[in-house]
Nucleic acid binder design. Structure first.
Length: 163
DNA sequence: GCCAACGTTGGC
DNA sequence: GCCAACGTTGGC
């Protein structure tokens, strides 16, 4: 299994919106970047875990842990002419964009971007790289462990379902 | 609102 | 295939 970090603007879809969603699950639609798409389509598996990250807001940072609940399938918003995510070049026979579904595992305290930057153990996290705009990034297992256990105080059992 | 980073587009 | 122009992201 792999670990990830997934960004969302809380003004668009926040951790509270996820908590309020049916089955605390949501399709991760609207990703329009090929690298992020490839992560979802090619690498993400049911059971993978991810940090839910609030971006473009007063206090950017990690606010929860989610789990991949459904494997990638064609993002329906690409076919919807009324959607801001409509892509006229995509067809059901030849879909361009894919989405997984994620389920809330638990909300966490805010681990602010500011705080993440203070730990040398996390210096190589992709999300900390200047100018990083990828909405989905892989997280190294050591970084995952550091954040969940050291910073959040979760037991290994809670932080990841398998060893 | 500014600006750095960087992905995408389109002319050639 | 190159590359300049343009648009978007996202922290500050």
């Amino acid at each position: 299994m792999r670990y990830w970090l997934m960004k969302s603007e809380p003004g668009e879809f926040s951790i509270d919106d996820l908590e309020a969603a049916p089955r605390r699950t949501t399709p991760w639609t609207g990703v329009r970047n090929y690298q992020a798409r490839n992560f979802m389509r090619d690498l993400m598996q049911v059971g993978d875990r991810a940090f839910f990250y609030h971006s473009s807001c007063p206090e950017p940072g990690i606010v929860g842990i989610v789990e991949v609940a459904a494997p990638a399938y064609p993002d329906p918003t690409q076919f919807d002419a009324g959607s801001p995510y409509y892509d006229p070049k995509a067809t059901p026979e030849n879909p361009r964009w894919f989405n997984v579904e994620v389920k809330l595992v638990r909300k966490t305290r805010l681990v602010a971007l500011k705080e993440l930057k203070q730990h040398p153990e996390l210096a190589s996290m992709q999300v900390l790289r200047p100018g990083n705009r990828l909405s989905i990034t892989p997280v190294d297992p050591r970084e995952w462990k550091f954040i969940t256990q050291r910073l959040l105080g979760l037991s290994g059992e809670v932080a990841s379902p398998c060893p």
